[in-house]
């Protein structure tokens, strides 16, 4: 079967910065290609250390690029401002790395919602981020600040919260969605509880239903090797991937009448509303407030 890839025309998605690759994984002068919002693009690292990217159908038009937090970010339209700030990651004594870049057959907002979700920990990450019968999601605080979604005081019992954790603990997370396709959490570091470790999921939207999720880490752990840190994240992500690939429809429905939310989903509800308000249409099924008929899945040909 042939896959027809539709090129994105959503002005909101086109004006965003999109992560494409971990810069550390680039070799100088090697040109790589990938899909971004349905467009074939090429990118690479020049000898002078600068980064470049272009659409394959317009090889002479240089696309705006940025190098931040270890990733190459590309914009396919007119960028509005810079890549969002991560103040914690600017601290000098941090270890910042890309734990993995994993392809998933789902839409970016489905992956963002999964990242925001604590309720699945005991069922999907049993023995790591949660364990039965500790299934309760206690109330937490959700706000919209500076056009970002924040969820604070997110508490959950975790048998092994991180690679460096020994034994169970009640973890407290703060979640932040600074970008429709990027999400991160901060939690107090096991090595210095007064400071925050950051785990991010920066999603490269290849098409509406296919993503490459770049898993960002910025931690104060000086003991665990890169391999140990990466492996932990990869185990967690490998548990999420089959769930994400079995959600239907793949695109995130913004109409509240398509899926049933509960109190535990407060952050996801805020995220869906926020996407609606941004007017984003790429990777979602926009909610039609006036619709009285049946919602269609928005599923396209495969």
């Amino acid at each position: 079967m042939t896959t027809t890839v539709e090129e994105c025309t959503d002005p909101v998605a086109l004006s965003l910065w999109h992560p494409v690759v971990a810069v550390a994984e680039l070799n100088p002068q090697e040109i790589q290609t990938t899909l971004l919002l349905g467009y074939q693009i090429s990118y690479g690292l020049r000898n002078d250390g600068s980064l470049g990217a272009a659409r394959q159908d317009q090889p002479r038009v240089e696309l705006p690029v940025r190098s931040r937090y270890g990733y190459l970010w590309v914009c396919l339209g007119e960028p509005r401002g810079d890549v969002f700030d991560i103040p914690e990651a600017e601290e000098a004594d941090r270890r910042t790395l890309n734990a993995a870049s994993i392809m998933v057959n789902t839409s970016a907002p489905r992956a963002v919602e999964n990242f925001l979700d604590m309720g699945h920990f005991p069922f999907v990450h049993g023995g790591f981020l949660g364990v039965e019968p500790h299934t309760e999601v206690v109330d937490y605080e959700v706000t919209i600040e500076n056009s970002e979604v924040w969820a604070r005081q997110c508490l959950f019992y975790q048998p092994q919260a991180a690679a460096s954790a020994s034994g169970g603990q009640i973890s407290e997370y703060t979640y932040r969605v600074p970008h429709p396709y990027c999400v991160m959490l901060t939690k107090s570091s096991p090595t210095d509880p007064s400071r925050q470790d950051v785990i991010g999921l920066f999603i490269q939207v290849m098409t509406q239903e296919r993503i490459r999720a770049h898993n960002f880490l910025s931690v104060l752990d000086e003991d665990s090797s890169d391999t140990v840190l990466k492996r932990f994240q990869q185990i967690i992500f490998s548990q999420d991937k089959p769930i994400l690939e079995n959600q239907y429809p793949k695109l995130l429905p913004l109409d509240p009448r398509v899926e049933v939310p509960i109190r535990a989903d407060k952050s996801a509800i805020a995220y869906r509303r926020w996407l609606s308000e941004l007017g984003l249409t790429y990777s979602v099924i926009p909610g039609d407030q006036n619709s009285t008929g049946q919602a269609t899945t928005g599923q396209r040909s495969l």
Binding site: P256, R257, V258, I262, Q294, T297, S301
Partner: peptide, 20 residues
């Protein structure tokens, strides 16, 4: 030519209040 896949309609649900 490959036929267009069918698009079954998803039934809408009654919105519930969040207190469940």
């Amino acid at each position: 030519p490959e036929p267009t896949p069918l698009e079954p309609a998803l039934e809408q649900i009654e919105p519930t209040d969040l207190d469940g």
